[in-house]
Every structure is written in structure tokens, then in C-alpha cells.
């Protein structure tokens, strides 16, 4: 079998600069976007529609269904964090994602379009004046 001659282009300065730029961009956006604070509430959306909000400090199991009533997944709130216990989706990535508890963290089940986000519902209260 004859194979065309491959022209190997060496990595050059331009490419290194581009790679460095991308990494800096990525790290900078890390820097700005993440602050880790424990969340208070959890929001579940199905196909971009709010399915419900639940308090993270109350242990419970939530059955998530779509608009036709078909069960999509079962999620469980326990000890201040939420996880997907079982799911009808194909890849089960949502189950593998495990527990989340910090504000802004998400579990996304793409096949079923279920998005679970940890939020600080109203606003986090820093202290109580007695």
C-alpha cells in the first residue's frame, strides 16, 4: 500500500505562544469564576425548565420526571450534598459525577437534559445578630 509522504511541521514559536495564551486564558477564568462556598439550596432543571428547588440541609430523595411523567433519574440529598443515585440515561456519567455541595457546582445529565445546580438561594447569611 502506498501512502503519501507526510510533511512533518515542527512546532514553532507561534504555536507555543498560542498554547501559552490558551492556558493563561483558562487559568485566568478559573481565577475569576470559582469561589468555593458551601451551598444552601439545590436547583433541578429538566430541559431548561425549573423542576424544583430543595434545601441541602434536609435529607431526602427526589424523583425527577419529564413533562410526560417518565422517570429520568433519582437524586439523593444527604449530609448537605446531592448526588444522582440512579438514572435512565445511556452513559450514567451523572451517577459517576458523585456528590456535589459547593455553590455553583453542577451535575449535568446530558442525555436526559437534567441539570442539578447547587445555589445559595436567597443570599448567604454571614452572621445572625441576636
Amino acid at each position: 500500500m502506498n501512502i503519501p509522504k507526510i510533511t512533518f511541521i515542527k512546532m514553532n514559536k507561534k504555536e507555543y505562544i498560542l498554547i501559552a495564551g490558551l492556558l493563561i486564558l483558562g487559568l485566568l477564568s478559573y481565577f475569576f469564576m470559582y469561589n468555593i462556598e458551601p451551598g444552601a439550596m439545590v436547583k433541578i432543571e429538566v430541559s431548561q425548565k425549573l423542576y424544583g428547588t430543595y434545601a441541602l440541609n434536609k435529607d431526602q430523595e427526589i424523583l425527577v420526571k419529564d413533562s410526560k411523567g417518565v422517570i429520568l433519574c433519582t437524586s439523593e440529598i444527604k449530609d448537605g450534598s446531592i448526588r444522582v443515585k440512579s438514572s435512565t440515561c445511556t452513559d450514567k456519567i451523572c451517577i459517576k459525577e458523585g456528590e456535589i455541595s459547593s455553590s455553583g457546582q453542577t451535575i449535568i445529565c446530558l442525555p436526559n437534559q437534567v441539570v442539578i445546580t447547587v445555589i445559595n438561594e436567597k443570599e448567604q447569611i454571614d452572621g445572625v445578630l441576636k
Binding site: N35, I125, V128, L129
Partner: peptide, 26 residues
């Protein structure tokens, strides 16, 4: 920093993501 002494609270600076501390009054 935030120091909460029950009936007295004092602040130093504000959290990274906002320019205030949120204090609930009982």
C-alpha cells in the same frame, strides 16, 4: 473578617465576590 459576638457584629473588608456582608437580624 467577620466577628459575631451575639448582639454585636463587626466587619473587616467584604467577601471576595460581593461588597457587603449579609447580616440577619433576629
Amino acid at each position: 473578617a467577620l466577628i459575631n459576638a451575639g448582639g454585636n457584629i463587626i466587619t473587616l473588608g467584604t467577601p471576595v465576590d460581593r461588597d457587603y456582608f449579609n447580616i440577619a437580624i433576629q
